[in-house]
Nucleic acid binder design. Structure first.
Lengths: 189, 189
DNA sequence: TCAAAAATTAAGACCTGCTGCTACTAGCTC
DNA sequence: GAGCTAGTAGCAGCAGGTCTTAATTTTTGA
């Protein structure tokens, strides 16, 4: 690690701390080829808490996070919603959504995005998926942003017919037709 | 907090630490009306690490957990596999797989279980989901164990037709037909 | 080119939350 | 009374810092 300008070093510092929050000042100092004191000053300027503080934050955060990550009722980010009609959601394909070998996204993510969106746009308190017909058109890779657009095309009794089309920035990658059922009274399908 | 017998105190200690891992020895000592030293001895006997250790564990755990939760290539536990023919997998529905209100399992879990199983039984290096037709027959609740059985019913070129049927301990709750495509050369579907 | 400003390093006292060790006491039990 | 367990106490030392004061080096601007 060669010596670099202050600004550059501070950027590197931020980066390192983000990637490996478990580094002590001493280790950081070695990595960046400056003294421990300099690291401390940098942390002060940048508002980066000390190792123990960082760890503590993660632990506290983690307690909630582990829950909330899985708890998210919607896979993807709702970016538009017209209850009872349509909705749009965005999902970024990250490294942990793909097969290690092929780097192709596992199908459940597209399905989950579509399924939760289909759920979300229906204006009823209790909705479950009844039937799904899905087609994967092209493989999706890491880093792609998937836009799913859902639309209720028909309602019959407690059954909602929803179409979802998912695009990346170039083409349609996935489409699905769902029959969603609003539960509550209706026990038969 | 009245003084209690050693065994009782140690049980309480374990309990407190589990519930609130962020308590220092001093606070624990106050809570249990003994000296700090006693708490230290107790921790030693019980193999409870110090505050910083506990926090650190949580933080590390959390980092992996977030990843590994999503990383599992197969949703559910493979309990039988005849490559190229069939397979069986087991999935326990836990509290974080259900809708908070209704306690009904979100559909993607059954789909994901089926989809990964369908993937797993195909004897080819690169397989993606092409088409899926799924039907949810009855809602699934927390605590149920789902047994998915998959079978390859037809192979045509690089396309594999797979049927998956998922039961709980009483009845069929879900079924799916997949067309899986072994990738590699074949770019068209 | 030279002084002022900025950046870096150093040194020392202090903090928290411990570990590890030795020592002591009280209460019971055989 | 000897021997045991359980509980306390005190002190040195450690990691990984904070906070402060000060000296040294580098850069920069006029």
């Amino acid at each position: 690690m060669a010596r670099v300008k202050k600004k550059v070093r501070q950027q590197l510092l931020v980066q390192q701390v983000r990637e490996k929050p478990f580094l002590t000042d001493e280790e950081l100092a070695r990595n960046l080829a400056v003294s421990v004191q300099t690291i401390r000053l940098d942390r002060l300027e940048l508002g980066i808490p000390e190792l123990r503080g960082r760890i503590r934050q993660m632990a506290e955060h983690a307690q909630n996070k582990v829950k909330s990550i899985q708890k998210s009722e919607v896979v993807g980010e709702l970016i538009d919603l017209e209850l009872g009609h349509s909705g749009i959601s965005l999902l970024r394909i990250t490294d942990d959504m793909v097969f290690e070998k092929s780097k192709i996204a596992r199908g459940h993510y597209m399905f989950s995005q579509a399924d939760s969106l289909a759920q979300a746009i229906i204006d009823a308190p209790l909705v479950v998926t009844g039937v799904a017909n899905v087609k994967y058109k092209v493989p999706v890779h890491v880093g792609e942003k998937l836009i799913a657009k859902a639309e209720i095309v028909k309602v019959r009794g407690n059954k909602y017919f929803v179409w979802v089309k998912t695009h990346n920035d170039r083409q349609e990658v996935f489409r699905a037709k769902f029959i969603m059922v609003s539960w509550a009274e209706a026990k038969g399908m």
